[in-house]
């Protein structure tokens, strides 16, 4: 005897786009009509898509959007030359997400350790500087190559333990970074 369970998975075309600053957009994409954003139908026309570029027309203005980078459901979109970061959720995952306790994130994981033995070539930031995830913090020469070591979180540069020209071993602490991510 078999038992079937019916669950409407893709019945929902409602998605939530969340900025890194916490701002949310509730976006409903009906199959045949204009998008509904925050419960309001917007007269936005999708004009064309080429490679990574999406062009829209709204209020008689053209908007060019470029997908700059993507990591799973996190995207960086460039509109009119300015980048906006969004984290995307389906309604389903969004609700679940709210339940997960965000406490207990490891701070020291964000400190920058030397990934290999080498020599520090250059420091790009100073103590107290703000740093974005993925932004290069310093350049490390190893294997005759300069490697840019990047931040693993958005944060503030704490103590810098090295100076240019200094040789470092693998796993040496190079720079302390304090996360400001929620």
């Amino acid at each position: 005897m078999g038992t079937s369970y019916v669950y409407k998975r893709d019945a929902s075309r409602l998605f939530i786009a969340m900025r890194e600053n916490g701002k949310r957009f509730k976006i409903y994409l009906p199959k045949e009509s204009k998008p509904v954003i925050d419960n309001e139908e917007k007269d936005i026309n999708f004009i064309e898509q080429s490679d990574y570029q999406y062009t829209f027309n709204w209020k008689d203005k053209r908007y060019n959007c470029e997908l700059v980078s993507r990591d799973q459901n996190k995207m960086v979109i460039k509109v009119n030359g300015v980048e906006y970061k969004f984290s995307l959720e389906s309604l389903f995952s969004y609700i679940r997400h709210g339940m997960i306790d965000k406490e207990g994130k490891q701070i020291d994981e964000n400190n920058i350790l030397s990934p290999m033995p080498g020599k520090i070539v250059d420091l790009f930031l100073a103590e107290g500087d703000l740093v974005n995830v993925g932004e290069p913090i310093l350049s490390l020469e190893a294997m005759k190559m300069q490697n840019e070591i990047t931040a693993t979180c958005n944060g503030v540069i704490g103590k810098i333990h090295v100076v240019p020209g200094q040789s470092v071993m693998k796993d040496d602490l190079l720079v302390e970074v304090t996360s400001i991510d929620v």
Partner: peptide, 26 residues
């Protein structure tokens, strides 16, 4: 540098990219 209209369009573009893949997998 940011502008609310651009931001909204950006959110829409991100959603379309995401939804395209999401709906295709689903």
């Amino acid at each position: 540098l940011e502008n609310p209209d651009d931001e909204l369009i950006g959110a829409l573009a991100a959603t379309i990219i995401y939804a395209t893949e999401y709906l295709q997998i689903a």
